[in-house]
Write a protein that binds this DNA or RNA. Structure first.
Lengths: 210, 210
DNA sequence: AATTGTGAAATCATTCACAGCC
DNA sequence: GGCTGTGAATGATTTCACAATT
């Protein structure tokens, strides 16, 4: 097997990567990795087989080599520059989150439309006005845009990102964005997640007499 | 058709709900709702058919009635009490996020293990020590636990939540949690999302000559 | 003996296409 | 004529099960 990795597999690669980084040992079997990632071992083997045949029958996978291959497949050999638009509570929290830098994502731009915020510093970076956005994308090669504005401004911000040439967007605003086909938008929606929690809660509460 | 709603459908119900709330009109066709939610209209009809037959052929769906039915199915007729453990940048941001209250999720507990934080107020609530956690879950009927601790403490916190009787957990810590079968854990992992962005970016960059 | 890699089977999700109803 | 509800068709994902390899 090889190439054209299915989306379901792409979603799991970062998890494997994290489990491998924590594993400690030299080699690892699909069975062990599956336990760490809490998935079926056949799934691990099939997922990894999309990257190529990097395992050794009877032995398992070489952890370092696998970490390298997954990282390469995920495009992590290069550092990506990230910008955050909308520096409210959530934007500020993300701007200060160390996990990004550790994993090769450099936050190189903070933007907000509120004049009161412009010039303030968050996590060592100065908040800039949106008028500088397009220029900054070019100059700093910003490639991933994070939207943490209120829902009402999210589409407008997304349009500006697309116009500036950004093709990868992480949207925390509770809204569905329109976008051209070549742009990839990932949605992280906190209330949606809570509502899904609610569904499963309500269902299990319904079962018991309570 | 009816009952036992598939997970893929459950994931979309909150999106439909949001689109309906913004729609304004009295009735809506599957075609229009599909455009708003950016999905296929057959998918909308099939999803809604799991809730029962609430549409009228030739007309569409009554918006208010549909909002009610989806809300009921998602268990939103009841307010759920939420607690947040780990009041760092992200925990603080979530504690102050208004979207929760608006959608019927009341944040009724903030906990942290750092003595320096105990007693401080965030969004009108006081941060409490974990020693009070179990008691608070009982007394305030906390039903959804949000974990915003560092990865290293997440499993311990999850165990405490489970021990206190919480069956629904939203985990923002970058780690996979062990849990009994009756507990539902949803993972929201920011670095994972960025890594997936990276994959699609790298892939599209590879295509062009750049 | 242990473990991978992968066809084949089973399951789940999406989309088509149209009969049935308003 | 317009639109829902849903079987049937298609496509994607997961899981099984085992031959191939070390």
């Amino acid at each position: 097997m090889h190439r054209q990795i299915p989306p379901a597999t792409v979603q799991r690669l970062p998890i494997y990567l994290r489990c491998l980084n924590e594993s400690g040992s030299e080699t690892i079997s699909s069975e062990t990795l599956a336990e760490l990632a809490r998935v079926n071992s056949a799934k691990v083997r099939k997922d990894l087989s999309f990257l190529g045949s990097y395992g050794t029958r009877g032995v398992g996978y070489d952890v370092d080599h696998l970490v390298y291959q997954i990282g390469r497949e995920l495009g992590l050999t290069k550092d990506w520059a990230v910008c955050i638009v909308g520096i409210g509570n959530l934007g500020r929290a993300l701007a200060q989150y160390r996990g990004f830098g550790e994993r090769g994502f450099a936050v190189l731009g903070l933007f907000d439309s509120d004049p009161a915020k412009i010039g303030k510093k968050v996590g060592g970076r100065t908040i800039e006005p949106l008028s500088r956005f397009k220029r900054a994308v070019k100059d700093r090669q910003l490639s991933i845009g994070v939207i943490t504005t209120p829902a009402a401004s999210a589409q407008e911000v997304a349009d500006q990102m697309v116009a500036a040439g950004i093709t990868s967007i992480l949207n925390f605003a509770p809204t569905v964005l329109s976008k051209p086909d070549n742009v990839d938008v990932r949605r992280v929606d906190l209330s949606t997640e809570l509502q899904i929690c609610s569904f499963y809660l309500a269902r299990s509460r319904g079962k018991q007499a309570s």
